[in-house]
Design a protein around this nucleic acid. Structure first.
Length: 227
DNA sequence: GCGACAG
DNA sequence: ATCTTGTCGC
């Protein structure tokens, strides 16, 4: 077996929390991105009543062909037995093992990764997107469908309108109206990216749907609803 | 003690 | 996350 770059995954809740506090100090909140040619979207689904975790990664070419033309470069689905239950705040310990398995099978090297879940908009500033970014040493962005922590005002009604997500005086993300008339998404930096840049990328990847294309396609593939 | 709580 | 049909609206 290989030696884990950061840690192993079988941890008790108290240990996982202590680990998150340590890892959070390694998260980079400033932009450190290479020229983007491929953007990956990641999401997790379950089979067998939750006994099997199914990770999906979709890689899209950038820049895209035309306004609403995306080129899917690669798609990977990786399954493995589920190890941990869902515990709010400890999501990465449940989902990352399978996600990393999917990345191991990926042939294309993305320069940016969008994850279904929070980045630093997390109680200890280490949501699943940040944790994955540290492990892969790649820029990551968290795009969640609901809030885990922080306070915010309701964003405007038009696509692109957003308000800051804050915790105390710290800005930890943005609440973005990705589509008018629909509940907003929660965008937060994962690793090696700033909030303004993360927001730009998410907005660039928006189609007519609520979720940006990378995450939307990964979502479909993970739930096997996708093709 | 009473809520809140990514997926 | 997942279990699930029809239905309202652009």
């Amino acid at each position: 077996m290989t030696t884990s770059p950061l840690h192993d995954w079988n941890l008790a809740p108290a240990e996982a929390i202590a680990l998150q506090r340590r890892l959070a100090g390694r998260v980079e909140r400033a932009d450190r991105l290479a020229e983007v040619r491929h953007i990956a979207g990641v999401d997790i689904g379950f089979e067998e009543s939750g006994a099997i975790t199914r990770a999906a990664v979709v890689v899209l070419a950038w820049p895209r062909g035309s306004e609403r033309e995306w080129t899917v470069v690669e798609r990977v689905v990786h399954r493995e037995p589920t190890r941990m239950p869902y515990v709010p705040g400890l999501l990465s310990f449940r989902e990352l093992p399978a996600a990393l398995g999917a990345f191991d099978e990926l042939e294309t090297q993305p320069q940016l990764v969008m994850v279904d879940g929070q980045g630093i908009a997390h109680p200890r500033r280490l949501g699943v997107a940040s944790h994955l970014g540290l492990w892969l040493d790649l820029p990551t962005i968290g795009v969640a469908k609901s809030r885990l922590c922080g306070r915010h005002a309701e964003p405007g009604p038009e696509r692109g309108d957003w308000t800051p997500l804050t915790d105390g005086h710290e800005v930890i993300g943005a609440v973005l109206r990705s589509r008018s008339g629909v509940k907003p998404v929660f965008v937060s930096p994962g690793h090696r990216i700033s909030l303004p840049t993360a927001l730009d990328w998410v907005i660039h990847c928006l189609g007519r749907t609520k979720l940006p294309e990378p995450t939307r396609l990964a979502d479909r593939l993970a739930s096997r609803r996708g093709q």
